[in-house]
């Protein structure tokens, strides 16, 4: 089986690699690039633990071939905010106790970035449906909803400040 050369931007850095056709993007990120913040929680694309941003959209990296990400711009949890700082969602998950074991958290946050981009002021119902492809077994979701609400407010403020 032939290898394929791929080049993509991950968290602002250009990466080139030779990969097998079947290499799943989640394994490329975790094993080839040693960025282990993106997790794996299922075999059937149901849990969302592997969610990343691909060209700005939330994508389940377990259901995406690395070869297909050639030329793409990818953001993982490690690259969401500059080292030592928090994205408003990261801050909100901390403030609102939106995480327990932390395993679902990177995926949950990456999904929420996309959610807030498309809907900066979501209702509780819209948040719940919006994160419905991401399972959390620990938190019961109440505080995740609150976290997204807090981040939405913060981001609206930030936006206002920059206008």
């Amino acid at each position: 089986m032939a290898k394929h050369e791929v080049t993509m931007t991950i968290n602002g850095q250009s990466v080139t690699a030779e990969v097998d056709s079947r290499l799943l993007l989640v394994h490329f990120i975790r094993e080839n690039l040693d960025m282990t913040g993106t997790h794996i929680g299922c075999d059937t694309s149901n849990c969302g633990a592997c969610t990343i941003l691909l060209d700005g959209k939330s994508v389940k990296a377990c259901t995406y071939l690395t070869v297909r990400a050639d030329g793409a711009e990818i953001t993982t949890i490690e690259g969401l905010a500059p080292e030592g700082t928090n994205h408003p969602l990261q801050q909100a998950f901390h403030d609102q106790h939106g995480l327990h074991c932390g395993f679902c958290t990177p995926g949950m946050i990456m999904r929420s970035v996309d959610l807030l981009k498309n809907n900066p002021n979501p209702t509780e119902e819209e948040i719940r449906w919006g994160i419905s492809g991401n399972l959390c077994r620990c938190t019961g979701y109440n505080n995740i909803v609150k976290s997204v609400q807090q981040a939405a407010k913060e981001m609206a403020k930030e936006k206002e400040a920059t206008v």
């Binding site: 998950f93 901390h94 995480l99 932390g102 958290t105 946050i109």
Partner: peptide, 9 residues
């Protein structure tokens, strides 16, 4: 929280 929020768990 910090390590989990930054993918460093």
């Amino acid at each position: 929280d910090a390590r989990f929020l930054h993918g460093k768990g």
